[in-house]
């Protein structure tokens, strides 16, 4: 089976996938090409926040609307589904809070599979080695045990009590602090991180990664932050996020195989990888076959 056939035959086909930040498209401008699940698609921003997405090789007949793919705008991004019956897109309730700043922090092309990028996002163990001085610093390398729950309704993975020593957890904090994270994986290729908010102790900042699988081994990672921060400029928030992602990219592109192996014997997992282990199982049981190497049990 080639990649396109795999895409068509697995649950990924009925998922919503992000294509562009709405703000990056010009209203009424020319349609823009991108790739989704091995197919070229064209995306066009119409008036009044409406969008149209279609397969690029689709001949256009008189009934333009009928040939369009399912599409919607959510969290500041254009989402599309190629399959006929899209599943419901998850929600991020915090996004809708009126006093939050929702900042699209950039899209990053990476030569890796979507699930490898998600695992990297869920991983604390690499902070001291990859984000040295920002998200972690040696010798503070310990990942203490945290909780992982996989629920059916909604169908998602949640990791809580994720503690990690960070050299400078928040603007203005001096010396290291143990920061607490919560991770949520509501979609095979999307994940959300909640982190304590330096400006309001009762609330949490939200950082998201929405991965657009261009092919099984190439992605565009769309990132967004939804934060309570009256001070920092959009640019400084973006630059920080770009620096972090710039550090992950070379690591991701040096992972082999690029697809995520679902057989637990292919790669050694440790307690710190509990969420990754749950994620791999969840992908296998959810019938995701795109961007992964199915394990012995899954086939």
């Amino acid at each position: 089976m080639n990649s396109l056939e795999i895409a068509k035959s697995c649950s990924t086909y009925s998922c919503w996938h992000p294509l562009f930040a709405l703000e990056d498209l010009e209203e009424g401008g020319v349609p823009v090409y991108t790739q989704l699940l091995d197919q070229a698609v064209l995306c066009e921003r119409l008036s009044e926040g409406k969008v149209s997405v279609r397969l690029a090789d689709q001949q256009r007949g008189p009934d333009r609307q009928a040939e369009d793919l399912h599409s919607q705008v959510q969290f500041g991004f254009v989402w599309a589904c190629i399959g006929p019956n899209p599943q419901l897109l998850f929600d991020i309730p915090e996004y809708h809070e009126p006093d939050r700043r929702n900042v699209c922090t950039g899209v990053f092309g990476v030569e890796v599979s979507a699930p490898r990028a998600i695992e990297n996002f869920l991983d604390m163990g690499h902070f001291p080695f990859v984000h040295t001085g920002l998200l972690g610093i040696e010798p503070h390398t310990e990942v203490v045990d945290y909780q992982v729950t996989v629920s059916d309704e909604p169908n998602e993975i949640v990791a809580t009590e994720c503690l990690f020593f960070q050299p400078q957890a928040a603007v203005g904090s001096v010396g290291g602090v143990v920061t607490e994270y919560v991770y949520r994986v509501p979609h095979p290729f999307c994940a959300i991180l909640y982190k304590s908010c330096p400006f309001d102790e009762s609330r949490r900042d939200v950082i998201t990664i929405f991965v657009q699988p261009e092919s099984e081994e190439r992605i565009r990672a769309h990132t967004m932050m939804s934060i309570v921060d009256p001070e920092s400029s959009d640019t400084s928030i973006r630059l920080f996020q770009q620096m972090i992602f710039g550090q992950d990219k070379p690591i991701l592109e040096n992972q082999f195989p690029k697809k995520l192996p679902l057989d637990p014997l292919d790669e050694i997992s440790i307690r710190a990888d509990r969420v990754a282990v749950a994620y791999r199982k969840w992908l296998a049981s959810g019938g995701v076959r795109y961007g992964v190497i199915p394990g012995a049990q899954a086939t």
Binding site: V130, E138, P250, N254, Q255, F256, P261, I268
Partner: peptide, 27 residues
């Protein structure tokens, strides 16, 4: 073999400290 047992990262991007090779991803 140019591959870390943990998450498959190439060991050639790791560090040779003279006595051991340290993987770049999780050390």
């Amino acid at each position: 073999q140019n591959r870390c047992l943990h998450r498959g990262v190439r060991l050639t991007i790791g560090t040779n400290d003279g006595a051991q090779l340290r993987c770049q991803y999780h050390g």
